[in-house]
Structure formats: C-alpha cells, structure tokens
Amino acid sequence: MQDFNTIFLSIIIEALPLVLVGVFVSAFIHLFVPAEWIQRILPRKRLTGIIAACFLGLFLPLCECGMVPIIRRLIHKGIPPYIAIAFMLSAPIINPLVAWSTYLAFSAFPSMVLYRLIGAFIAVVIIAFIISTSRDRLVLSSGEAAATSDCCGHHTHQPPDSNSSFQSTLRAMLYHACDDFFDMGRFLLIGSFLAALIQTTVPRLTLLSFGQDPGYSVGGMMFFAFLISVCSQADAFIAAPFLEHFSTGSLAAFLIFGPMLDIKNTAMLLTIFKPLFTLKLVLLITATVFGISLTMVYFPQLWEVICFVH
C-alpha cells in the first residue's frame, strides 16, 4: 500500500509539471494564433499538404485534448478534412514538448523519441492519404453544419463593454488554462493510479509473458493506451517503466496510438463527425498504427538503423 502510494506520487510529481506547461502554452496558442493563419500557410497539393500538416505541431504543441475543437473550426473554415485530421493526429506527437518529455522519460533509451516521431509521421501520412482518396466530403455530423464555429464560447462570454480587448483576451486565456488543468489533469491522475496499481499488484513475470508475444503485446499496449487516456506530454512516463520487459515496437505502439485515439477523444470525435465516418477513422488509425508497430517488431534491424540505436 505504501509502495503503491510512493509510485503513484512519483508519477504525478514527474508528469504533472509537463501537463501544466502544456496547459499554459496551449492556452496561449488557442487565443493568439488564428486558424486563418494556419489555412494561409498550408500548401494546396495533397501530399505536400499532408506533410506540412504533420509538422504544424512544431509551432502548435497542443495536447490531443485541445485538438478536436480546433480541427472542427478548421473544417468549418474550409480546410479539407484529411488535412485537418493529419494535423489532429500528428500535432500531439510531433511537437517539441512531447519529444522532450519522451526524451526525459526514456533517458535510458533515447532512440525511443525517434521511434515515436518517425512511426507517428509514417502512420499519419498513410491515414491522411487514405482519407483523401475517399469520396465523401461531408464528414461532419448533421447538427454540426449549423453549429457555431467557436467551440467553448471563450470569446462570446466577454462583456461587450470591455474597453481593452487585449486585457479580456488575456483574462480569457488564463481562465481557460485553469479549466484545462482540470480537463486534462483528471485523465492523468486516473492513468497514474492504474499504472501504479498494475506495478504493485501484477507481478512483472505476468506482464513479461504478455509482452513476449509480438502481436498480443502491440495490441495490448494499444488497448492500454486507449483505456488510460493520458495526455501525450505525460504518457512516456507511464510507458518508460515497461522498457525492460516490452518490445520496442509495443512501447512505440503505446506512444503513437495513445495521443491519436483514446476514450476521451473518441467521444469528442463522435460529437463532430458522422458516426460511420468516426468508425472508419478509428479502424483506419488502429490498423495503421498496429501495422507500423509490427514492422518494428519483425524488422528490428531496419528500425534500429532509422532510429540510430547503437
């Protein structure tokens, strides 16, 4: 029991500061980087557009929790859904904050950062390209068409008589950061709790036998990522303790799949996309990440070369 508490607390002390940084940064960007600006800089060609969208996360280091409302606004403003989805899936992974926290957590095996970034990049390009070839353009759910493009009403609840709009924007941003802490923090706490519980109650040998079979371990880690719904800035700390027992491919699957899909953002996706499209998207993401992770398991030398494993 005391050991459980020590491990639980240690994950929180380690990961919560990174979530806090993310909350402040994302609140800032949410208010000061207009979606129009993103639309203007995106290339018009399909593949270059997808690739450019993949690297937007470098400038917009957002957690997956903040992505769904933003892509809804992007699609409303006329950005093709496949570009918006490429952005949604890549930004929570291919961004400096996540790379840094992954590096901290995997300081014993820094190449994991490259497995995560490169694996995610390939997955997103494949997923977005497949979506771009499908004919259905009307992907938003029917109620969406009439909905306002502004997600949380952060700008609408400003009093109109405010004479300093910068001040009110700043205030909205700071208030938003507080709410974000609660929106994201609870998933982190639940995830840390489950991780600490698994660490202190399930013997490693049980986990080990589970981690040996390539197919089960990749699928299992993806399922684990889906269930615990931890923010992408903190999930590396939950995966790192498994480094000794799980294959690199299965840990990469956890790190790539978790930010793309989990319980909380699947629910959010259903609120904006048609149910059938959501289902297709979920299956497509799952199959693609599973396939890429399996190549890491079955062709380890290839990936070791790509990711500079010594």
Partner: peptide
C-alpha cells in the same frame, strides 16, 4: 533512472 515508477 527517472522516478520511483521505474525503480528496479
């Protein structure tokens, strides 16, 4: 190597 969660 990082926190008590990865203690071996």
């Amino acid at each position: 190597s990082c926190c008590a969660a990865d203690a071996v």
